[in-house]
Design a protein around this nucleic acid. Structure first.
Length: 850
RNA sequence: GCCCUUGUGUCGGAACUGGUAUACGAGUCGCACUUAAAAUGCGAUGCCCGUAAGGGAUUGAGGGUUCGAAUCCCUCCAAGGGCACCA
């Protein structure tokens, strides 16, 4: 046995050993309870750095400990392999995206994730750009299409004139194309595919309450994103065209008597219909300008309002007022009805608009129902109505209901709920994505590709990447030209591919039956494993990926494909890893572009995988940010070295014994295993072991998941062992030391899997060559051995500490009080004082109030 | 602007339900080992006053509840994140 701890001698040996033993293979049927452990799968960008490793380490520790606790664990890994960077690399380096992606996957899997010592079941590896995966992505799309959840509709989208393609919202940075910061993105009206996530808005919102295992902040972010508003839709009849109504959505029906104008969004079709001849030119010009307006312009002109009168009026159904109709880009076509009523007195934006166009500001609510006269700013709070006909004098809350009711009775409107959530635009004019399985037939229109013809293969050979002019698929006639499944005539394939978020919205279902050639997943397997018991991932996916996955699961449940409603029972969203960036001079998220990355290969070589894992876990609790520091990592390497040296020494002395180590030494009170011979040092060490087992078990439990304190407890045990060895100087097989060392290794095994396995075998604790510490049972503890008989009683006067005295555990109140009154320092404080009250916290403190 | 999170020694961070603030690690200093250094082991180490014994203040700031507050409540300040003309 080497006297020097050098992980490079054995890290890879054990990784191979575990793989040969198929230690991490999940069983599809088992008498053990199942535990589905999931970590967000990576995009194969090519090179993981230590910052990326945090999430895999956390998830791996959880999986390993669950295995030791006796669960049948599914811990899979895969690749979110479609996406733009691959296509970019292809354009830049003339390397096919598939080749680039596959090479990256091999490197990341074999050289990075495996070398971290992760415990994945690689037989279930999933790669979203493989046709045996996207076959089922397409099949699911067809299911959504059948149910009317995938629809084609016109929508304004982000268009980059340089790339000649639609961009995802995520690819618009500061109003410009992410590839050309100098090119502003344009808004373009296009026919695109959407998934109707809004169909589930209400449920997605309501069921957030059932996700008790999710962080509060993630639930809140989703809640805000879905954005439910309670209000009313009110109808304003056009004065010159009594058969046309403008419907507006408002959350403030109580302010309807204060309406001084109505505004339409520039894209609202009513603009063209209602505009008067005199205004036609000005309105058309404004609408044109608004269309061209980029997000950049919008942001810079945020607060100032623009707009044009369209030469028509509407009648307020509540008071008969005739008010003008404007068109303005502060009204969005995609929210509500694309029209709003302007109430300057009680809305910030309407106030600004009214000022600019000199429109009347009619006060209809105030704190006490009395007019305040000239308004310098809009009054936004609740209050009492005035100038509101028969509703004057009513408070806002009741007025909202009353006015909505009146509208319903008089066909002037109705109550309505509005969501901020929009339907999910999934079309992408890109090559490297899952083809949408549809054809366009001149005769029959849009037709789905029959299930039996799936998958629609993404062509790999003969694809040219020029970097301009949209998707290369459109320039491949041999792929583009197909036949109509209905009439058999000529048809063109859909050239758009799907948003990559679709691929990741169901990968956790595929893991349950990853190699099934005939189905997306079998009912039996998916329902055995789902829902995911513990999901770990970055907070950057708090909304999109997690919301989409919830939507998918819900839709599939309604189709009878899965049984569960919510896919992820518990969610741990880990904080990002930061480091000082020489580029910006600040502490920022670790990333290549910021020049503050720590490479994995180099780190593993210098300190070993276990030190990397321990530092990542120790530096801060998982939900918080972690600042990478070389010093801290060295500290963990030192801790491992300390364990190594101690155990090498004990082995040389022959004190560790394979049989003794498994004997529980349950009782220190005289009747346990060899208890008669136990010294005070022995008893203390046994207690320390039990206390450590208790603390670490608690720290690794789902209620806590605080790995930093778990490691701290293990360090204390190691410190205790050093002290014990120094004191006792053991020379022969020791039951106490064998027991302590064995349990230390068990507790550290999930966090530092290599060194614990190596020492387990080196010390001869293994039951055979095929044995692994990772197959061991997680240790139990004896509650009675986790408490000390002797405690320190704290004595306080008025809550201030005056003295501390030793006392035996379990003292009653009287006795504790007696101890306090007997103490010299207490006496000094209390003489001549009237004692008002004595508070005794058993086994903790006595507080005398004077 | 709205919503959320976080503020504890020189640094990363502990303190489970209000009950000994600063566990564990890093750094620094000292001792041992060594010809020497590194490594390792042992010990000390939040701040102020004091040679010491001892005393005092202290968990971003201020206030409150309580016998007792890092922890609960209110106001404010700072940093980070999310949303942002959503009617």
């Amino acid at each position: 046995m080497e006297s020097q701890y050098s992980p490079k001698e054995f890290d890879e040996k054990w990784q191979k050993h575990w793989e040969d033993l198929e230690l991490y293979k999940a069983q599809d049927d088992s008498s053990k309870p199942k535990f589905y452990s999931l970590v967000m799968f990576p995009y194969p960008s090519g090179d993981l750095h230590m910052g990326h490793m945090r999430v895999y380490t956390i998830s791996d520790v959880i999986s390993r400990q669950r295995r030791m606790l006796g669960y049948n664990v599914l811990n899979p890994m895969g690749w979110d392999a479609f996406g733009l960077p691959a296509e970019n690399a292809a354009i830049k380096r003339k390397l096919h995206p598939e080749k680039w992606t596959k090479e990256n996957i091999r490197f990341m899997r074999d050289e990075q994730l495996k070398k971290l010592g992760t415990s994945y079941d690689w037989q279930r590896e999933v790669t979203t750009c493989d046709s045996n995966y996207y076959h089922w992505t397409q099949w699911l799309f067809l299911k959504f299409y059948e149910k009317g959840l995938a629809v084609r509709k016109e929508a304004p989208v982000n268009w980059c004139p340089d790339c000649q393609t639609v961009l995802a919202n995520e690819q618009v940075e500061g109003g410009a194309c992410w590839r050309h910061p100098e090119t502003p993105v344009e808004q373009k009206q296009m026919s695109q595919w959407f998934l109707r996530i809004t169909h589930y808005a209400e449920e997605l919102l309501a069921d957030l309450d059932t996700l008790k295992g999710w962080p509060e902040r993630v639930r809140l972010m989703q809640q805000n994103w879905i954005g439910k508003s309670q209000g009313a839709e009110l109808y304003f009849t056009v004065e010159s065209k009594p058969n046309v109504q403008i419907k507006v959505f408002t959350t403030r029906p109580d302010t309807v008597f204060g309406v001084s104008y109505v505004v339409l969004a520039p894209e609202n079709p009513l603009v063209k219909e209602l505009v008067s001849d005199e205004c036609k030119e000005a309105v058309a010009a404004y609408v044109e300008e608004a269309k061209r307006k980029t997000e950049l312009d919008r942001m810079t002109t945020e607060k100032s309002k623009s707009g044009v009168f369209i030469g028509a009026h509407v009648v307020n159904p509540f008071n008969g007022d005739v008010v003008p109709i404007y068109v303005s880009d502060y009204v969005l076509m995609s929210y509500g009805t694309g029209a709003v009523m302007g109430v300057p007195a009680h809305d910030e934006r309407d106030f600004a608009f009214a000022r600019k166009f000199s429109l009347p500001i009619t006060e209809v609510i105030s704190a006490d129902g009395k007019s305040v006269g000239e308004m310098a700013a809009p009054y936004l709070d609740d209050g009492i109505l005035l100038n509101s006909g028969k509703f004057s004098g009513v408070d806002t809350t009741r007025a909202k209901t009353a006015i909505t009711e009146w509208a319903e009775q008089n066909q002037a409107g109705k109550g309505r709920v509005q969501f901020r959530l929009r339907d999910w635009l999934i079309s992408r004019q890109r090559y490297w994505g899952c083809p949408i399985p549809l054809v366009h037939c001149a005769k029959c229109g849009i037709k789905p590709v029959p299930e039996t013809s799936l998958p629609v293969i993404l062509p790999v050979e003969g694809v040219e990447f020029t970097g301009e002019g949209g998707s290369p698929l459109g320039r491949m006639p041999e792929w583009l030209n197909s036949t109509c499944p209905d009439c058999g005539g000529a048809a063109r394939r859909e050239t758009d591919t799907m948003d990559t978020f679709i691929d990741s919205s169901w990968y956790f279902l595929r893991y349950t039956d990853a190699t099934n050639p005939a189905e997306a997943f079998s009912q039996a397997k998916v329902n055995y494993w789902m829902p995911v018991d513990q999901y770990v991932g970055g907070v950057e996916h708090a909304i999109l990926h997690l919301l989409y996955s919830r939507f998918f699961t819900r839709a599939l449940k309604d189709m009878g494909l899965v049984n569960c409603v919510e896919p992820f029972t518990n969610l741990l969203s880990q904080g990002m890893v930061t480091m000082y960036s020489p580029v910006s001079g600040r502490i920022e998220k670790m990333s290549k572009s910021r020049g503050n990355v720590v490479g994995t290969l180099d780190f593993f070589k210098r300190y070993g995988a276990d030190a990397a894992r321990l530092f990542t876990l120790f530096a801060s609790p998982p939900e918080q940010e972690l600042e990478w520091s070389e010093d801290g990592a060295v500290g963990q390497h030192r801790f491992l070295t300390r364990i190594w040296r101690l155990l090498v020494d004990l082995k040389a002395k022959g004190v560790i014994d394979r049989d003794l180590c498994r004997k529980p030494l349950a009782s220190s009170n005289g009747n346990g295993n060899g208890a008669a011979a136990l010294s005070a040092a022995d008893k203390n060490l046994i207690k320390l072991v039990h206390k450590t087992i208790k603390a670490v078990s608690n720290d690794l439990s789902p209620e806590r998941y605080v790995f930093n304190t778990a490691i701290a407890r293990c360090m204390e045990l190691v410190n205790g062992l050093y002290k014990y060895v120094q004191e006792v100087e053991p020379k022969e097989a020791s039951p106490v030391l064998s027991f302590a060392v064995y349990n230390l290794l068990l507790l550290l095994a999930p966090m530092a899997p290599h060194i614990t396995e190596e020492l387990y075998h080196q010390l001869g604790l293994a039951l055979s060559d095929k044995d692994s510490i990772h197959c061991s049972k997680w240790p139990d503890f004896d509650e009675s051995l986790t408490v000390d008989d002797e405690i320190e009683l704290v004595l306080q006067v008025n809550g201030k500490i005056v003295s501390k005295v030793p006392a035996s555990r379990g003292l009653d109140r009287k006795a504790a009080e007696g101890l306090a009154m007997d103490d010299d320092k207490m006496k000094a404080k209390l003489t001549g004082q009237a004692v008002k009250k004595v508070i005794v916290v058993p086994d903790k403190l006595v507080n005398v109030v004077i």
